[in-house]
Design a binder for these strands. Structure first.
Lengths: 361, 361
DNA sequence: CGAATTTCGGGAACCGGTTCCAGACCATAA
DNA sequence: TTATGGTCTGGAACCGGTTCCCGAAATTCG
């Protein structure tokens, strides 16, 4: 039923043409005003039960879907959340992303992804053009090391903001305690009797990952120092990848005279590489070399890697909850949280050989 | 020159109150009409050089950013693209995603991500609620096996649609020829003299990955049959992961009597697992066992894996170009493309031992 | 039973842009 | 000189919803 359609091009006076917008169609079909149809469909305001039923039936009949643009324009809400993230394909980031997406979808929010490269014209463009458009009700920042200026830019958007994996000035942050995790991992090795321990972690120069690298190094050094052990010369930098750990492993383990009895790797993927390097050099794990990582990567089971598991999906879920709470309450800043890690002991760590020989006597 | 400003709150007649929307502010500051400001900023229509300069200066002065919602409402363009994808954290998908994001950003498009689980209420909700909102000018579907009904739903959105990694009815698709790639990989092994070859690939029951699994199996079987070799009992299914290949490898290679001389793995990650399983069993690669994969995974270098490299980033770039072309031309369907793969020979493949012994005589 | 309050529905303004249309101006062609 | 056409600008309609405000009806209360 198209209703009273005009005959077309004649006269064209403004009031002649009935509005053809979708919700107006629904309203006409249901025999009510646009305002009533809107109230009935959104559930806000007074509408009688019969009227609501009529409107809903009409909407279903013509397959009505509200235009989010029109709604956003007047409400100021977009029902979508922006996520800025430096990597997509690395394990931790992929996990976080999947959990964010799932949690947001559950609440009816779209997720718009902004992959943020290191300082570059493209990165600036994301801030000045894409983020400035404000097509989101809030932002989740995943392990992005933001410059002071960038933090200011984000705050100027006047949107709730939640960080994952590192503190941002004036922003609720979900994170693990990297210093404590690194200390725990190191202490595990120390408690097994190791004295000759090295740490393979991310380069300090690689700004991308917040202060994750330096925090894990600090935790390592704190544990070592506390145990009365020297720390100089005990750190090797590496890519945060399996090949990175592999290359470092060949270099570190290649010289039998300078070979440590245990390695604390800043990530599981580095640890995998180290284990493979050790195997290639004929060094048995854990008999001759203990290796511990941080992450709880799904492959760690296969490598029988002892690791400090963090739980990226939990971090993602919590970030969404924090953001949506902030959105609902109108307060732009929620509570930060430090999530626990768990030590998963497998068979890549054991007491050093010397100690075992001693005990066997 | 603000023109005839009213004195304020008196009377409140509709035409009295000047509109306060952002572009109206710009227009007022520049001393022109909204329409002129819009033309000056968007570059459409006639505007004199001086007027344009004035408007742009005014816009810069008050930090004007156009509301994409308002613009979308009238133009029907959202300047954003929806991406539906089954996984995020697997290598191929992560790569595709990063390249899509980069290419879209370059053209000023946002990327909204819809992570599509296998058949489930959540999946239905993505189609019926999220996609129905049409907050995108087009859709890129990455390796999603769509049901007939879902394809219909997508077409009903009347938006350009591009697929990556498998044909969709009525849609331009960017893909590699999986049958040919598998055949090539198998032929590489055959040409080295292998007769006893098995294929470790994805389970046919796993619908998620389109027909990738069965296509690669078909390519393998075609090459084998052509070489006059039997194919029954030569296929083992596995997870598309390193641990999956590892577990399969231990099972297949554990029994020395039934051990093949070469394995064609449907993905590099499976191949990595197979290589690790071989090492664990003391089987030397490639001396006693050749392994070839498909992907061109960044870790393949480290494993010295011979592989058929596909190029996910190229696929992503091409998908974006195809989609944006379709958007510009108004035609909803662009040209499909089959991208080439390249054989990267490293040292995980060689002639079988028996043959080498024969040659040495 | 009349007054106050709550429920319900409609008209119209409004969100912030884009675009159609008409009119003014200027230059060139007839 | 007048017709023609391109350039430039402003007014107003419009996209498709939401919400304010107001009046009528129904309900509760004194």
């Amino acid at each position: 039923m198209p209703g009273k359609r005009t005959l077309g091009y004649e006269k064209q006076s403004p009031q002649t043409e009935a509005q053809m917008s979708a919700i107006a169609d629904v309203a006409r079909l249901a025999g009510v005003a646009k305002a009533t149809a809107s109230r009935a469909l959104s559930g806000r305001g007074y509408v009688s039960t019969e009227t609501r039923a009529k409107v809903i039936a009409a909407a279903r009949q013509i397959g009505y879907v509200a235009s989010p643009n029109a709604a956003s324009l007047v409400t100021g809400r977009t029902q979508s959340v922006g996520v800025i993230i430096p990597y997509i394909s690395r394990w931790f980031f992929g996990e976080v992303l999947e959990s964010l997406e799932l949690a947001l979808l559950e609440h009816g929010y779209d997720m718009t992804l902004y992959n943020l490269p290191p300082a570059s014209p493209e990165r600036d463009r994301v801030f000045e053009f894409f983020l400035a458009r404000k097509r989101f009700d809030g932002i989740i920042s995943v392990c992005v090391a933001l410059s002071e200026q960038e933090v200011d830019q984000l705050h100027r958007l006047r949107r709730p903001l939640v960080g994952i994996g590192g503190p941002i000035r004036g922003v609720a942050t979900i994170e693990i305690d990297d210093v404590a995790a690194a200390r725990l991992a190191t202490e595990h090795l120390l408690s097994l009797g190791h004295r000759d321990i090295v740490h393979v972690g991310g380069s300090q120069a690689d700004e991308m990952d917040f202060e994750v690298h330096s925090n894990r190094l600090r935790g390592f050094e704190a544990a070592m120092t506390e145990a009365g052990l020297p720390v100089s010369g005990c750190f090797y930098s590496s890519d945060f990848t399996m090949p990175g750990g592999y290359a470092r492993g060949l270099a570190i383990l290649g010289d039998p005279r300078r070979r440590p009895t245990a390695i604390f790797a800043a990530s599981d993927e580095i640890a995998f590489g180290l284990i493979l390097a050790a195997r290639e050099l004929g060094i048995r794990v854990p008999t001759e070399l203990s290796v511990i990582g941080i992450d709880g990567h799904p492959h760690s089971e296969m490598f029988r890697l002892t690791t400090l598991a963090q739980h990226p999906r939990t971090q993602g879920q919590l970030a969404v909850r924090t953001l949506l709470d902030g959105l609902a309450s109108g307060s732009s800043i929620g509570a930060s949280a430090v999530l626990p890690t768990s030590l998963v002991i497998r068979s890549s760590t054991s007491a050093p050989r010397a100690l075992r020989a001693l005990r066997a006597e």
